[in-house]
Design a protein around this nucleic acid. Structure first.
Lengths: 209, 209
DNA sequence: TCTTTTCTGTAACGACCGCTAGGGAAATGC
DNA sequence: GCATTTCCCTAGCGGTCGTTACAGAAAAGA
């Protein structure tokens, strides 16, 4: 029996036959984002999810596939809604240094924002995970971020904005390490001001221009 | 019925009455260290533990109490066997700067040492943990490390070794963030050389003397 | 109205979780 | 030899995990 499989909110594809679903898929997804963000993939059970999403298990499975597919959608939603500040900084700031400075500054605020879980979902939600593909998917996202940092730094070197002998990969790794450490400390209770101080100190590694 | 409760290897307290245990408690504990270190508290099941320790579940419970007590003993064993390099550096190096430099350099090696799990058990093994006391116990250890960094920096300020207006708490937090970020990246596949480059870059924040 | 389609709620599946009762087995002291 | 103490193994406890069968309810099309 073929199932409709993960019916995203059908816009005007026909006329929506049969009984319509009684919950808003987007707001349910947002609640799942918060739950996975706070407790991680494994520690968030399906019954936790059905409770915070306000739906029954069969509705969850009909709308999102299974727990792993829901998590993948959660990660994508998190990326566009909460995790896009790094990409924006890399694209909008005139130099790699300015981009990293903005990323660290904004991370201090994002990772301690009131009313939502602290730290970064991509960094924490799939650590110590018994499902290897889930752990690997977030690891790939983290490493992709390092590559994005590195590419931006390389562009500045090519443009003469940074010294030719600067180790782009190492500087990118350093920026990533500071971001990841700040996220960990946000989870451990650090305040926005404390993380901003860390960000400011960390920026002193960049060569004087 | 009162149980003997966690009989540590009885030295010469009497003559060891009854049937002696058939496994070596220390080597079994070491296997538990490696298992918890690699997969974390929740993701390491009791049956995982009994397998790698080579004993049955009742033997495990008789010798170590329960899973949580075993984990506490594992954390202590990890601290003395693998995690003591930070305390040594803080105690032995002549300045805070030298201590942090040594900590970062040694962390690059420790967190990527072949033949054992990468990264730091204290940083990773209790993230996304459904047992709040376990998560909290490692969080306290991490925050205690930050305080130790801060105290060492304050001592250098008091001795005139560092500027009087230097923000000891922020510098301590920065060092901790770099260490935690390096540990995360070690788990994500970074090599010792890559982490040593990060460590070297991170040391450039310290004021010129 | 009646059929068709799709969603919802109940209730349960098999698997694994941390943990332990209970009966022998192996050492001691006498 | 015997009784005592302690350990190990088998087997299973109650509970939760992710997932789904099934039947009834609610919409559309005829």
């Amino acid at each position: 029996m073929v199932r409709s499989e993960e019916t995203k909110p059908q816009f005007k594809t026909g006329k929506a036959r049969g009984r319509p679903r009684s919950f808003d898929r987007t707001t349910a997804l947002e609640q799942a984002v918060l739950a996975f963000w706070e407790h991680g993939y494994e520690a968030t059970s399906v019954s936790d999810l059905t409770r915070v999403m306000g739906i029954g298990a069969p509705s969850l499975y009909a709308a999102f596939g299974d727990k792993q597919a829901l998590f993948a959608e959660v990660v994508a939603e998190y990326g566009t809604r909460y995790g896009s500040f790094t990409g924006r900084a890399l694209a909008e700031e005139p130099t790699a240094r300015a981009a990293v400075a903005r990323i660290l500054r904004e991370a201090a605020a994002e990772y301690t924002a009131p009313g939502r879980p602290h730290g970064c979902l991509v960094i924490h939600a799939a650590t110590n995970c018994t499902t290897p593909e889930v752990e690997e998917s977030l690891r790939e996202r983290r490493n992709a971020n390092l590559v994005a940092f590195e590419r931006r730094i390389e562009a500045d070197i090519a443009a003469g904005e940074l010294p030719a002998d600067l180790d782009a990969a190492a500087f990118a790794r350093h920026a990533g390490a500071v971001v990841q450490g700040m996220s960990q400390q946000a989870r451990d209770g650090a305040s926005r001001q404390e993380l901003e101080a860390v960000a400011e100190i960390a920026m002193n590694i960049w060569p004087r221009t």
